[in-house]
Design a protein around this nucleic acid. Sequence first.
DNA 1: GCGTTTACGTAGTGGACGCTATAGAATGCT
DNA 2: AGCATTCTATAGCGTCCACTACGTAAACGC
Lengths: 179, 179
Amino acid sequence: MALRLFWTRGYEATSTAELTSAMGISMPSLYAAFGDKKTLFRETVAHYQQNYAITLDAEREGATARDVVADLLHDAAMTYADPAKPPGCLIISATANCTQASDDLEAELRAHRDANIRALERLIHSDIRAGHLPPDTDAHALARFFGATIQGMAQQARDGATRDELLVIARTALSAWPA
Amino acid sequence: MALRLFWTRGYEATSTAELTSAMGISMPSLYAAFGDKKTLFRETVAHYQQNYAITLDAEREGATARDVVADLLHDAAMTYADPAKPPGCLIISATANCTQASDDLEAELRAHRDANIRALERLIHSDIRAGHLPPDTDAHALARFFGATIQGMAQQARDGATRDELLVIARTALSAWPA
DNA sequence: GCGTTTACGTAGTGGACGCTATAGAATGCT
DNA sequence: AGCATTCTATAGCGTCCACTACGTAAACGC
């Protein structure tokens, strides 16, 4: 599975030889199917996004932003330290420390991360408008804080943190939610 | 300067050719002075540790653990998003996504990170014993939370967050401190 | 049954990596 | 000054990278 390799080792540290042997196919088959390594990676990211990435469920009926963020943090803890999957998050760490040759991929994943934080910010804003949060709440700051927390949880998971430890981080972070 | 290169690009993504041209020396001079690339990196890490890394000042007179952590977060924000320096933290990200060939370096930096979190935990423990924190405070959880926050701030800085944005993250994180 | 075509695997391509052998320049001693 | 020694620089070593050209063998049409 290409996903597991990119997930654990990142983009550049995963060689095409490892990919072909893990996928059980030969080198020309891989290039006939995907064109090049970058395209394979992009399709892997899309697959990850749809099947494994945590998402904030902004459409949940009757849920406040706090509820949604609580679920998001819970999902992050459960996913990032799932013993059956590689630790951490592909979108957060797969293009960390890459050469100029992969600057485009790094920018694409960064765009994903920024989009997630902006979605979080919109969610908080709508809760301010709905009166669930004080009108002077700094939505941008709050969104960035939880974005940073989730990225920190991903890094902690890669450093060996367990689900329980991540869940406690999530709970502590949530206590920073404005009254 | 080797430090800037390793700091921005990480260990494996920095080539020896870039290092020599940045240091203004030739390839054999580098190998005569340091032996190999790993040793150069280790000495760079030591130099970074002594001159640039944020440290928690556990010996500060009359300061509570909260004060010390507040300063630590403040320093992190100022350092990680310093326009005059590469963004983020070398010890946090320089060995992310490395090949098996660099597993030893990754383990060494991970040990640094773990030591920092344990130092934070000891600081919190001593504040519990001193009565500045409730006796049921989960020191381990709190230390991991702030460790995750700092790692998240470093990643945010590498994603382009400004000092002000990091400072607000720091302030928000501190509001999770037990009453 | 046979020629053609399609698919796969082996082996190799140019290039960059970490690292080093050899040749030249600068320095110190007599 | 002349010589030895050290110190540096160019050029190249083997290896691995992403990627591809060829030989081989199975599948299809007649």
